[in-house]
């Protein structure tokens, strides 16, 4: 039986797909058979981030509608053994997925995999609710920014009331907070909510912190999940997240600003100023 993990946030553009790709790849790198399912119907993007966009033949909607089998629709990753991707459809029909259909597909995947990662669409409506409905565990991706934190709180409310586990009175979905695009320098300047601030408000156990990092864009340009770049802070932070999820104890990294000398501060380059904006 697989563990079903939803990567969710409410707000769009906070790093769900980046996280789904990195986290799923990380689990597979650790030897767990993993499939990442793109639930963002109409806005398929996981395939690009994973670098398999030209290998898409069938998609999740085809499988739900029984026009293709999961085996036909899944794409096996060429770099990492044990890793598969089930792409989203590009249909405009928002109601293309049914609860029964999704349940059947997840049941089938459960028999073959250790972990099923569901990359949720943005929003708190049907699409996002379907992605989380059958989850055992949730990674709530939050940026240290007011609207993202508020939306995460609303998502936590939905996880606790509208999931299958909630409706059936089972043990609740395990909740994990992942703060991404964190900039310790801006926190130190008082311009950005700190980790502690976000935790004080959401009161969910912190799974990890991913720093704002240029390597994330580079990774998506290349179609290689950022966790495969072990020189990048974001890649290292994602590897820590996977280890923690699997029960290892690891201190949080990249949460403190590396102090610069006064001279360096005064003669900050234009580049650094812009990066800080």
């Amino acid at each position: 039986m697989a563990k079903i993990i939803v990567v969710t946030s409410g707000k769009g553009g906070v790093g769900k797909t980046t996280t789904s790709a990195a986290f799923g790849t990380g689990l597979a790198l650790r030897g767990h058979k993993t499939v990442i399912v793109d639930f963002d119907v109409g806005l398929r993007n996981l395939d690009l981030i994973m670098g398999c966009e030209r290998r898409v033949v069938y998609d999740l909607v085809n499988v739900v509608n029984q026009e293709a089998t999961v085996t036909q629709a899944m794409i096996k990753d060429k770099r990492v053994p044990n890793l598969y991707i089930l792409p989203a459809s590009q249909t405009r029909d928002k109601d293309a997925l049914t609860k029964e259909g999704v349940e059947r597909v997840l049941k089938e995947l459960s028999q073959q995999f250790d972990y099923i990662i569901c990359d949720s669409p943005a929003g708190i409506e049907r699409g996002a609710q379907l992605a989380m409905y059958f989850a055992d565990s949730a990674i709530v991706v939050t940026n240290p920014e007011v609207s993202s934190v508020r939306d995460s709180d609303r998502i936590l409310g939905i996880l606790a009331s509208k999931s299958k586990r909630a409706e059936q009175g089972d043990t609740p979905i395990e909740e994990h907070l992942l703060v991404t695009r964190y900039s310790p320098e801006r926190v130190e300047r008082g311009e950005m909510l700190s980790l502690q601030d976000v935790q004080d408000i959401l009161r969910v156990k912190l799974l990890g912190v991913i720093p704002e990092s240029k390597s994330v864009l580079q990774a998506s340009n290349a179609g290689v999940p950022v966790i495969m770049n072990d020189k990048s802070e974001a890649g290292i932070a994602y590897a820590d997240v996977v280890a923690r999820f699997l029960g290892e104890k690891r201190p949080h990294r990249f949460t403190q600003h590396k102090r610069k000398g006064l001279l360096q501060r005064l003669f900050k380059t234009r580049d650094e100023e812009e990066a800080a904006l």
């Binding site: 920014e145 007011v146 934190v149 508020r150 709180d153 609303r154 409310g157 926190v187 300047r189 008082g190 311009e191 950005m192 909510l193 700190s194 601030d197 004080d200 408000i201």
Partner: peptide
């Protein structure tokens, strides 16, 4: 001078969030 001028915006964000989130909860 920049650091001192912007010190309070994160504090303000936290205060506003605490109010709205507890209300919505």
């Amino acid at each position: 001078f920049k650091p001192n001028m912007q010190r309070n915006s994160a504090v303000l964000a936290k205060e506003r969030l605490q109010i709205i989130v507890s209300h919505e909860r």
